[in-house]
Design a protein around this nucleic acid. Structure first.
Lengths: 203, 203
DNA sequence: CGCCTCTGCCTACGCATGTTAGGTTTTGGC
DNA sequence: GCCAAAACCTAACATGCGTAGGCAGAGGCG
């Protein structure tokens, strides 16, 4: 019998496709072994186990989405950058729901440090550059955008907006307007706080 | 041997405590049976199975958090209401991480309709009343607040803010200021859109 | 007080999954 | 053509979900 030609990369890719197709919970050693026509135990020389597999999918998702975001953000700033950011994340999340879900699981600090997480923070930071915020407000702003995009995608994909008017797409437009308005009207800092800076992981 | 005195309510409560203590993934028929000193099969006359169990935890979480929110929001409006909303959700989520996680799983439409989900939307709607937004902007605003709170809690509990300055608590303060500013400076609607209204489920 | 029925809980089973241990076969370099 | 290092396999154990059918405790009724 010919060999299947397994490798951590091929396993990760197949796991990612499986996750997108049937959900992250379907990413299991057994299912993946079936896909390659191989015994489940055979995976363990390439991958540490199911958790490792999902973590690899998460890292892949972080990488890919950072690449995609870098593309759509190129050359944009201000409101256009905000719109591109929101649309870019949403598009990736809907195109690759499994990988996106994987990025939402907590990864251990070592993996997080070497992940594309910091790139996401840097991208958001650059996208907000045109608003001229100083630290620590820029960091606050990046966190707000991150949380909003994050939560929005979660609610929209969970169908929370499905049974109420207006349609989610309309709110998404207004969301960008509102964020743009927020950063233009950014409130003066009430109590001067400690010093700023640096990046977050996970987009 | 005396009977254990199982009931759907007791099972749900024990499942919720287990979820808070060890994570939602630990909520399984077997673990719960162990807790009551009972055979796993004994649960199936009270509960349809593991999924049913988790759904009950989710409904409990929606109910409890709506109650808690109603309390902290009572008598507040404007910025104070926003602050209470953000703090209230965050407090519930950190006090009951398992139940909170359960509310984030998608529930089937029938259960969602009878859940406390709509109450959450109504609470947020009332909290934003002082800003005098008209429909459909009020709905947009409610969705934005919902997504932001949602995403913020997810990022904060995932530890995304742990390794960067300033501390998350400082950003949370500014978050409320920024939202307040956003709703005061709410942008005029560019294209008049269709008619508004109604509630979302899931907070 | 004693019987009888109902139902709460049990034993027994089948099946799927994750994971480890150790053997066998294929592959490719020498 | 050989031989060592992999790639993959079989076997086995543990844990989990869920179904079928049996026993016995609890409370109603005479």
């Amino acid at each position: 019998m010919p060999r299947a030609g397994l490798s951590p990369e091929r396993l990760t890719l197949a796991a990612a496709e499986l996750a997108d197709r049937e959900g992250l919970h379907a990413v299991t050693a057994t299912a993946l072994a079936r896909h390659f026509g191989v015994a489940p135990a055979s995976l363990y020389s390439h991958v540490r186990g199911t958790l490792d597999l999902r973590e690899r999918v998460a890292l892949l998702g972080l990488q890919e989405s950072a690449d995609a975001l870098a593309d759509v953000l190129a050359g944009r700033s201000g409101r256009a950058a905000l719109a591109a950011l929101a649309a870019g994340y949403r598009d990736y999340a809907t195109a690759h729901p499994g990988r996106w879900a994987a990025t939402r699981t907590r990864l251990d600090p070592a993996a997080a440090a070497t992940s594309a997480g910091p790139r996401h923070a840097a991208l958001a930071r650059a996208a907000l550059g045109a608003y001229g915020l100083d630290e620590p407000d820029l960091t606050h702003a990046v966190r707000i955008v991150g949380a909003l995009v994050q939560g929005w995608i979660e609610l929209e994909t969970a169908g929370s907006f499905d049974h109420s008017d207006p349609p989610a797409a309309a709110s998404r437009e207004r969301l960008v307007d509102a964020l743009d308005a927020m950063f233009r009207a950014w409130p003066a800092t009430p109590h001067p706080t400690t010093t700023p800076q640096t990046e977050d992981h996970t987009p």
